[in-house]
Simulated assay, not measured.
Amino acid sequence: MTVLLVALGAALGAPLRYLTDRAVQARHGSAFPWGTFTVNVTGSALLGFLAALPAGGGAMAFAGTGLCGALTTYSTFGYETLRLAEDGARLHAVLNAAASIGAGLGAAYCGMALAGALPA
């Protein structure tokens, strides 16, 4: 049953990642990968929120592992960062790495804080 919940969450998260990435990136003309940055920070906030809730294993399998796992993308982040560096946009590459890690951790913390502020 858990595998099915993860697969269902991923079936929702993967297209959501693609559509969000394309929509965000289409609005920016810069080399900076704003679409990937957006889905990774959003997914980090959602996962932080979910991790702080007293949710059962099924909810975390669906939303945490499945949805957030497919929504966020470390491989694309790594690829885009290396591509920026190889294309001579080293400053963008460093900013992408630093901002993605910092914003992802900050978003996860804010998600956890938000969940902790909810009435029990």
Rank of each mutant, 00 (worst) to 15 (best):
T36Y: 04
R17A: 07
V6T: 09
D21G: 14
V3Y: 12
N96G: 09
P119T: 11
P15M: 11
Y79S: 08
T36A: 13
A10N: 14
A23S: 15
D21V: 15
A70P: 03
L71E: 05
W34H: 12
V94C: 15
A23T: 12
V24N: 14
L114T: 02
V41F: 02
Y109V: 15
A10L: 09
S30L: 10
A59Q: 02
A89K: 11
G116A: 13
S30Q: 11
A31G: 10
A85R: 15
L19D: 07
A14V: 07
A11G: 15
G43P: 08
F37T: 15
G66P: 00
L50A: 04
A10K: 08
G35Y: 06
L19Q: 12
F37N: 08
G48Q: 04
A115T: 03
W34T: 10
L91I: 10
A115W: 06
A7Y: 13
G69E: 08
I101K: 10
R90Y: 05
L12T: 13
R17L: 07
Y18E: 10
G35L: 06
A107V: 03
F32E: 02
L47A: 08
G48P: 03
R17P: 10
A52I: 07
A63P: 04
Y18S: 08
V39Q: 03
C68T: 04
T36G: 03
A45K: 01
P15C: 12
A97V: 12
G66H: 06
V39A: 04
F77N: 00
L5A: 15
H28S: 10
G48E: 03
A59G: 08
G88K: 07
A99C: 12
A59W: 03
R83M: 01
G116Y: 10
V6S: 05
S44T: 02
G106N: 03
G9D: 03
G78F: 04
A51M: 14
G13T: 05
A115G: 11
L84T: 00
L8V: 12
L53Y: 05
A120G: 14
Y18M: 09
A52M: 06
A59P: 02
T81Y: 04
G116P: 04
G13P: 15
G56A: 06
P15R: 14
L50P: 00
L118I: 12
L8W: 06
V24A: 07
A108E: 01
M60I: 01
S75Y: 01
C68S: 01
A10G: 13
L91K: 13
A63F: 06
V41Y: 01
A55I: 09
S75W: 01
G9L: 01
L71Y: 00
G69P: 02
L95S: 15
A52L: 08
L95T: 13
A89S: 14
A120T: 07
G88I: 02
G9H: 03
G102L: 13
N96E: 11
F77V: 02
L46R: 02
T73R: 00
R22V: 09
G56E: 00
F49H: 00
A113R: 15
R83F: 00
T2Q: 14
A55M: 11
G29A: 14
G9A: 09
G104W: 14
G48A: 08
M1T: 12
G48R: 00
G64V: 05
